[in-house]
């Protein structure tokens, strides 16, 4: 028998309701040497992101004369998953995730303001419990903001899925491997534009609309949380520089 993902009381395996996000936690400025950095936690998923740049382009042949070059690398710590595996950098999965993170961040960065420069985004997964690419995009977004790189909007990302005839928000690892569809969305919330959309498995079109709508709402909620974190951080900085008195 398949695993029951929703209890008769309507609660999920980790006690959440179907349209509930896991607990979010974010910190800015966690790596002293980087220009911008952030950790982002969604439940047990924890990632750290660092941004270096804008700086001179390392490989001159890649230099773009009218915009900034954005680079991204995604990696997973050996201890991030339950069973320890030695992972090589640059396997197909990480290359793909690096690419989608880069694309969704490029949509937000005002690259035309920084011609002939390079921006490096590095994300490292410390704990993986489903939704790592969403958490990475959120962390990268905060790190870019922390680095003071001009952006049109923050990028917020969230996954949603469909199990036991119910649309579910922010899947954890168990739900992710439950065989149902998994829709990952990244959103520019103020511009209301999608920068990333990935889905696997199959789903009727009417259902997709609902699941997609739910994921969208999740992104908006996450964006609000991220905005609050940035605001708090800015307040702290203003206080530290003596601009405001508390």
């Amino acid at each position: 028998m398949a695993l029951e993902f929703i209890s008769p009381e309507g609660l999920r395996l980790d006690g959440r309701r179907p349209a509930e996000i896991r607990q979010l936690r974010a910190n800015l400025g966690v790596i002293d040497k980087a220009d911008g950095s952030a950790t982002f936690e969604m439940g047990n998923t924890k990632v750290i992101a660092a941004v270096y740049g804008p700086h001179e382009v390392q490989n001159r042949s890649q230099q773009l004369l009218d915009q900034a070059l954005v680079k991204c690398e995604y990696s997973m710590a050996n201890f991030s998953t339950g069973d320890r595996r030695r992972k090589q950098k640059g396997d197909r999965r990480s290359v793909e995730i690096s690419l989608v993170i880069r694309q969704s961040m490029e949509a937000a960065i005002m690259t035309h303001l920084l011609p002939r420069t390079q921006i490096d985004i590095f994300v490292h997964v410390l704990q993986a419990d489903g939704g790592t690419r969403s958490a990475c995009i959120n962390a990268a977004s905060l790190a870019l903001a922390d680095a003071g790189i001009p952006m049109r909007d923050i990028v917020a990302s969230c996954a949603s899925g469909y199990l036991n005839n119910t649309p579910l928000l922010d899947l954890n690892y168990l739900e992710d491997s439950g065989g149902g569809p998994d829709v990952t969305i990244a959103l520019l919330p103020k511009l209301d534009k999608i920068t990333l959309l990935q889905m696997d498995a199959k789903l009727p079109l009417e259902m997709f609309e609902k699941v997609f709508e739910l994921g969208n709402k999740g992104c908006v909620a996450i964006a609000n949380y991220m905005r609050n974190v940035l605001l708090e951080n800015t307040k702290d900085l203003a206080f530290a520089r003596g601009v405001v008195k508390v």
Binding site: I31, K33, I48, E73, A77, K89, D120, F122, H124
Partner: peptide, 16 residues
């Protein structure tokens, strides 16, 4: 014992 230098520590650690 396996040590990994994350690229978050320095851009030079990117890739290999």
């Amino acid at each position: 014992i396996n040590i990994e230098c994350s690229s978050t520590a320095a851009p030079q650690f990117e890739g290999r």
